[in-house]
Write a protein that binds this DNA or RNA. Structure first.
Lengths: 176, 176
DNA sequence: TGTACATCAGTGAACGCGCGTTCACTGATGTAC
DNA sequence: TGTACATCAGTGAACGCGCGTTCACTGATGTAC
């Protein structure tokens, strides 16, 4: 049957949002199209009324996820909370332990690097906006972003809790 | 038929080495057991004479890759070339463009974070040795490793060449 | 030292499962008159 | 405003392919006597 056009837009957004969360949490390859659709409250067949391929969804999900990061960066930039508080927000246990709600670059950057041009474009455009959101020196922003991202990636890959805690802690200290 | 025991060890090592390269280049999920065995000069069925599962191979490959990184770090530590030259070696276009020969953590860290405990253990032990290989302050080593890793990950995920070149360049400068 | 035999790395066909994708069908929506 | 009909998001079964894994088999190696 035909469904209201208004709801269709909402469903489309729900698919992207839910996919973004699942992808960040478990990686592109470990999340099924069917799983995404189920989480969005639909059946898998309907997927192709919204996207041509799974790869298209990946790109849309990265664009969405980068959008979330841009908003966070802009909020911090506007409230002038400074770099220190941004690092504190980024480098904590909550972020480390719940990648599904966290930074897209820290969760999917390596997979994006091996992905399609479309995927990289979404990543790249997001990064560009994140870097300029802070407002300070561009090289500083790049350096800080790299250090924060690296800190989270390392902390997530280490299972010894003391060691894992030590990583964000050290990065925070040295970033000053 | 039965094969010489000596060659078997060499074959086993070849499988791990080749797997490590392929995994770093294309990710765990995008490399087939059959593909690894073919690259090692064997057929896929023989795989299970060497490993119980693909996951076991992943852990062995990460351990091997981390070993390569440890050797590099120790060499630099021994020759006292300093942090600057280490950063130069790590943050260049060659490393960015050939992940198969490069740092395991920068290529597979995010997948390791979602992987088995065995996989994380191999990663973690390698990181521990890399950190102490330099000999300097531990917090400095952690910070530097995070920044370098983040720089390579970002540079690889960005396709605009100017932008991509700008990232390692900035990290190198700011690491001083 | 020679002989008989058990071992087991390696081969290649086959299995079975899961996943991305397709397709015939549905029926309320939105449009044309 | 009412009526006829075309559209198309969504359903759920099915397809087909690729992958990890299994298995019967091979025959030179290594061992026991």
């Amino acid at each position: 049957m035909r469904y209201p056009a208004k709801e269709t837009v909402a469903k489309h957004e729900r698919i992207v949002k839910v996919a973004s969360r699942l992808f960040r949490k478990r990686g592109f390859e470990n999340v099924t199209v069917g799983e995404v659709m189920k989480a969005a409250g639909l059946t898998h067949g309907a997927f192709y009324a919204h996207f041509g391929t799974k790869q298209e969804l990946q790109a849309a999900a990265v664009a969405y996820g980068q959008g979330v990061s841009i908003d966070r960066a802009k909020t911090h930039g506007a409230t002038k909370m400074g770099r220190r508080s941004y690092a504190d927000m980024y480098l904590n246990q909550g972020h480390r332990d719940t990648p599904g709600n966290g930074c897209t670059m820290a969760a999917l950057g390596q997979e994006v690097a091996r992905g399609t041009s479309e995927l990289k474009a979404a990543f790249e455009q997001g990064l560009e906006e994140i870097l300029s959101a802070g407002g300070g020196d561009r090289k500083d922003a790049i350096f800080q972003t790299a250090a924060l991202l690296g800190g989270i990636v390392l902390a997530r890959a280490v299972q010894n809790l003391q060691f894992s805690d030590e990583i964000p802690e050290s990065v925070r200290q040295k970033l000053g």
